[in-house]
Design a protein around this nucleic acid. Structure first.
Lengths: 349, 349
DNA sequence: AGATAGAATGAACACGTTTTCACTTTTCGT
DNA sequence: ACGAAAAGTGAAAACGTGTTCATTCTATCT
C-alpha cells in the first residue's frame, strides 16, 4: 500500500491517486471529466480514493491546457454602494452554483482608471467579465480582453451603437427605464406636482445620463416643463447638500426625483431634518433601484425597481451560453422596470 | 519581421515576444521577474515589444510552476450586510495595490454549508483565505486548505484556544470589544439607564456570543443587573419585530444595545414608528460597527466603532508576511474599539 | 596582461493536467 | 460462434511559464 509518490506541495496529485488505485494517471483524469468513457466501477473506485486523499484536479494545470479558469471578473466602482453590493451578492451565489467564482475588482468612483484596471484584470484570465466601467471604448475592451467574454450591462458601448456592431464578443443586457419612470411621473402628476427636480448621479456616468434623458422625455411627453437638475454623485452626503442648496439658495421644487435610492435618502433627511419640510406633504420624493433599505420605516421610499434576481439570472444565462458557444451571434436582452409605491409621494398640503 | 509563431488562443506568448526581440524565451521570463539578472537595455527592449504585442505572462502557467495564484479567497455570509461590504471594498482595494485579487464566495447566513464551501474554494488554490465562517473546526480547516494561509479574524477557532496551538498556519486578528462596550455602558449609566436589553445577532455566531458576553461582564463589573436578551439575526426586520415584542408583550427597557448597526436601525424604527416612543428621550439605543449609514440624519446612531482601514491594513500585512515567510510563527494582532457618540443616547424624560 | 570574480545567457527539466491517437478488450447482432 | 462495432485503455504530446545548471561574456583587480 505504499503510495509511491511524495506529497507535492501539500496537495495530492493525479499521479498519487493513480498509484493507489492501480490505474493510469489518464484514468484519474477521466474519472473527473463527465463526458469521457471509463468503466463505471473503475470511476467509482478512483473517486473514492481521491476523496480519501483529499484530491481535486489542480485548477491551474487545468486552466493551462483548457484555457478556462472558471473565474468571472466583476468590476465595480464601489462595493459598499447598496445596489451594487446586492448585485454582487446575487451574482456570487448564482456563479457558485454553476462551478464558477467571482473575481472582484474595484475601479475608482470617478471611473478614471478603467483601462489600467482592465489590463490588470486580464492578467487573471477570467472566462467572462461583468463591468461597471464608463470611459472605455469598445475596441479598447476587445484589445484587452482577448478571448474573454465581456457582458456589458445597462448601457450602449461608446463606439458601438448596437450589440451586433460591436462584434460577436459583446452580449448586452439592457434596462428599459421608461416604464418605471413614466409610472412615477404619472403618479406625481396625479398629485398635482408641477416642478420636479432631478437629483443627479455621477455626472457623465451612463446610468445617470440614461435616467436623466428618460425623465426629460417622459415629462415632455406629458406636457411638463423640463426638470431642474441639481448635482449629486449617487451618494448620501452630496444629495443632502444639494437638496439644502436647492431650497435655501435655489427655487425649491414640488418633488425630487433622485438618481438612486441612497440619494433619495440624503434628500429626505435634508428636507426633514435640515429644512423642516414634510415628506410627502410638502415635497414628494422618488428613488431608483429599490434597494433593501427602501422599505425601512424611516424612509419608506417610493421608487423605481428592476428585479435583481431576474437580472442576475439573465446575466449568468448569457455568460454560460457564450462559454459553451463562443461564436454565437451577440445577444441582447431587455428587462423592464416598474414603480414600487410606498409613502413618499402624496398630495400636497 | 515575420513573427514565426501563431497567435495562441488569442493571446501573445513568451515565445512570440522572444522571436520578435531576437532573444531566448528565458530572457523574456527574466524581463518580467525583477530579481533576475538581465542586461538593462535588453530588458527594456523586451518590455517594449511585450507591450506592443499586448503580452502578459500567463497566470495559469505561472501558478502551475510557482504554486502562487495571487488570489485571496474571501468568504462572507452576506455581501449586502453593510459592515461586510465595507470590509470587502477596503480589502479589494488594498489587495489590488499589492498585485492580488479578491476571490469572493458566499456562505449561507446560518453558516450551515461552511465545509462544502471551503472545499469548493480550495479548488481555486487561493494563496490565502479570509473567512467569516462559524461552524468549522481547526483541523477541518487545516485539512481543506493545504498550503493556503487562512487568517482567521475576530474570534478564536474552536478546537484551538490560541493561534500558537493551531499551528503556524493560523494567524489571527482580534478585536478587543471591551473598551468600546465599556464606554457605551458608562455613558448609559451616566444618564440613569438601569434596564438594558441586548438585541442579539445570529444566535451562535462568534460575533454575537463575544459581544453578549462582553456586555454581561462589563455590566456586572459596574454593578448592574444582567441584560434582557431578545432575539435577532443581524438584520433589520428581525430587530424590528423583536423590539415591538419587547415593549408590547415583554417588560420593555431603558436602553437597547444592538449586536450591530443595522439591528439598531430596526430597533429605532420600531420604537419611533410602531411604538410611538422617542429616541433617546424614552429609550436610548447603541449600535455596533459604525457603518456609513450610522451618521445619516434619520438615525444619527451612537455606536461602538472599530477602525476598518486599520483592520484591513493589518490583515493585508499579515497575509503578505506569511506568503513571504510561510514558516514564521503564528502572529496575533489586536485592535481596539471605541465609542462614537452621536444622538441616540441621552437623559430620560 | 593575466587571472578571476561576477554577471549574463540558453538548454533542459519541472509543474499537473487534458487531449489525441493508436491499441486492446468487451458488447452486440445475426 | 463469428465478425463488426463500440467502449475502454495507456503512451506521448501538448499548455506557457519559472528554475536550475553549466557555460560564455564582461569588467575589475593585481
Amino acid at each position: 500500500m505504499a503510495d509511491g509518490a511524495e506529497l507535492s506541495r501539500g496537495r495530492a496529485t493525479a499521479e498519487m491517486v493513480a498509484a493507489r488505485a492501480n490505474v493510469s494517471r489518464v484514468a484519474v483524469s477521466r474519472a473527473f471529466n463527465p463526458h469521457t468513457s471509463l468503466k463505471p466501477e473503475k470511476r467509482e473506485l478512483i473517486l473514492r480514493i481521491a476523496q480519501e486523499l483529499n484530491y481535486t484536479p489542480d485548477r491551474a494545470a487545468r486552466a493551462l491546457v483548457s484555457g478556462r479558469t472558471h473565474l468571472v471578473g466583476v468590476i465595480v466602482p464601489d462595493v459598499c454602494s447598496n445596489w451594487e453590493s446586492q448585485e454582487i451578492d446575487a451574482l456570487t451565489t448564482a456563479l457558485q452554483a454553476e462551478g464558477f467564482a467571482t473575481l472582484l475588482f474595484k475601479t475608482r468612483t470617478d471611473y478614471s482608471m478603467d483601462e489600467q484596471l482592465l489590463a490588470y484584470m486580464r492578467g487573471f484570465n477570467p472566462d467572462s467579465v461583468i463591468a461597471f466601467v464608463e470611459n472605455v471604448k469598445a475596441r479598447t475592451l476587445a484589445k484587452f480582453l482577448g478571448r474573454a467574454v465581456p457582458i456589458y450591462v445597462d448601457y450602449p458601448l461608446p463606439g458601438a451603437t448596437s450589440a451586433r456592431e460591436a462584434g460577436p464578443l459583446f452580449d448586452r443586457l439592457n434596462i428599459l427605464q421608461r416604464d418605471g419612470i413614466d409610472q412615477a411621473v404619472a403618479l406625481l402628476q396625479g398629485y398635482g406636482v408641477r416642478r420636479i427636480a432631478y437629483l443627479a448621479g455621477v455626472e457623465k456616468s451612463r446610468a445617470n445620463v440614461a435616467r436623466e434623458n428618460t425623465l426629460r422625455q417622459v415629462m415632455a411627453a406629458r406636457g411638463m416643463e423640463p426638470p431642474t437638475v441639481i448635482a449629486g454623485d449617487f451618494g448620501y452626503d452630496a444629495a443632502y447638500q444639494s437638496t439644502v442648496n436647492l431650497f435655501r439658495v435655489g427655487e425649491g421644487a414640488d418633488a425630487i426625483f433622485a438618481a438612486n435610492d441612497v440619494s433619495a435618502f440624503g434628500a429626505m433627511d435634508a428636507l426633514r431634518h435640515e429644512l423642516k419640510l414634510r415628506v410627502p406633504e410638502d415635497v414628494s420624493v422618488v428613488g431608483f433601484d429599490d434597494i433593501a433599505q427602501a422599505h425601512w420605516k424611516s424612509y419608506n421610499l417610493t421608487t423605481v425597481k428592476f428585479d435583481l434576481d431576474e437580472r442576475v439570472q439573465a446575466l449568468v444565462r448569457l455568460i454560460l451560453r457564450r462559454l459553451n458557444n463562443p461564436d454565437a451571434p451577440a445577444l441582447e436582452e431587455t428587462l423592464d422596470t416598474r414603480l414600487v409605491v410606498r409613502g413618499t409621494v402624496g398630495a400636497r398640503r
